[in-house]
Amino acid sequence: MRFKAIGFLAFGIFTYDPIYIAYKNLFYEVPDISNIYGRDSYAIITGATDGIGKGFCEALAEKGMNIILISRNQEKLDRVAKEISEKYGIKCITHAMDLSKAGNHDYIKLKKKTDVLDVSMLVNNVGKVSYSRTKELKYNEIEEIINLNSLSMMHLLRMYLPTFERRRVRSAVINLSSFLAVRPMPIVSLYSGTKAFNHYLTEGLSEEYGDCIDILSFQPATVITNSTLNEKPSWRSCTVQQSVRGALLDLGRRRTTHGHWNHELLAWAISWVPERIRLKYMSYSIDQTIKIRLQK
């Protein structure tokens, strides 16, 4: 009986994630976000003019959220803000800011600009990946990757978590991690490390602030964006819209999401692969992916 109980427990642990993934995609709906986090409130989204950032802008605007778009190009900010506000009938505010070089005064300027608004959500999306091996990275490139991927997120959390904590209704934070942070990764080790930092920080904060803020670590795999134009739809990739919708399905329900169901299954499968085998396979797979993307 004891061995049978252990067997049932092991089977339950092994199958829990696939069962949840199936249930989530068959029965969950994206929640009424503006009602949960405050009607007429604003979501701050970094890296908002392209890719996953723009995808969050559109998905949240569709749910009635007003948007504060942050990126470094004012022209692109104005174009995307106009497009979204006209399509969804919500308010858009833009703030040009280069988070790879931002100093304390830049963050203070942003905070003063948003203090007059009811900010209820923060989506830390901005980031950068380098396809150079560690020995090939330049000093400025290392600084930029760490600043964009992790340091900017830390400063924005430091500023807005107290604001969220004081609100009368719930607030939300979505921090972009990556599938490449699920386990240590070769070749793109710096990127993987910064995204692992984001994930660990998010997991801790989700427990710390769980009574008033929904905090989600988002770890997508390959999403087809402007930076992955040579990537074709496949078992390992999905569109921006699919990825963002999958993340929003988990907001307020889990601490970690991989977004689309195929990315959820990829993460589940790789978690069972022995480390030595996984590192060899990922080294080959990442190397091939880099060659494809550098062809554009």
Rank of each mutant, 00 (worst) to 15 (best):
V30G: 07
E62G: 12
W235Y: 08
L148Q: 08
I224G: 04
S120T: 15
S206M: 12
Y42C: 00
E29I: 09
T289E: 10
T228E: 09
L9C: 09
L99W: 06
F11P: 04
N198V: 15
A172H: 01
D98I: 09
E207G: 12
S206A: 13
E275D: 12
R79G: 00
E207I: 11
L190M: 14
H95Q: 11
L77H: 02
R183F: 11
E86L: 13
T257Y: 01
K232R: 14
S100A: 15
I146M: 12
T202I: 14
H260D: 02
P220Y: 08
V126D: 05
R253P: 00
S85H: 04
F179K: 01
I36D: 09
Y160R: 04
V126S: 04
S130M: 06
E58R: 08
Q295P: 00
S178T: 05
Y88F: 15
D115F: 05
A196W: 03
P186F: 06
K63V: 10
Y160H: 07
L156Q: 01
T15N: 13
I68H: 02
D214A: 11
Y191S: 01
T202G: 06
S237T: 15
K113W: 13
N198P: 10
L156T: 03
P274F: 14
D250I: 13
V80E: 09
G127V: 06
E165S: 15
P184R: 01
A267I: 07
D50S: 15
T15S: 15
I52A: 04
V116R: 13
R79M: 11
V80Y: 04
K87I: 08
A59N: 12
K111I: 14
I44L: 09
R72W: 00
L265N: 05
G89I: 11
E264F: 03
L156H: 02
I108E: 15
I36E: 13
V119Y: 08
R158L: 13
N125P: 05
S234L: 04
F179H: 07
V126A: 12
G246R: 01
V223C: 03
M97R: 06
R236A: 08
S234H: 06
A22Y: 14
R168K: 15
L190K: 00
R170C: 05
T49D: 11
W235G: 01
Y37N: 02
R167G: 08
V119P: 00
G246C: 06
C212F: 03
Q241T: 07
D115S: 15
E141S: 06
I33Q: 03
T256C: 05
K195Q: 08
G53C: 06
L205E: 09
G89V: 09
R2F: 15
K82Y: 02
S150E: 11
T257I: 11
S100Y: 09
N140K: 15
L294N: 10
H258P: 00
V119Q: 05
G193T: 11
I142R: 00
I84A: 06
I68W: 06
I292P: 00
H258D: 10
I36R: 10
C238W: 07
T94A: 10
S234Y: 07
I187A: 02
Y200T: 15
I67F: 05
W235S: 03
F197Y: 10
V119A: 03
Y107T: 04
S206Q: 13
R278M: 12
I174H: 00
G55R: 01
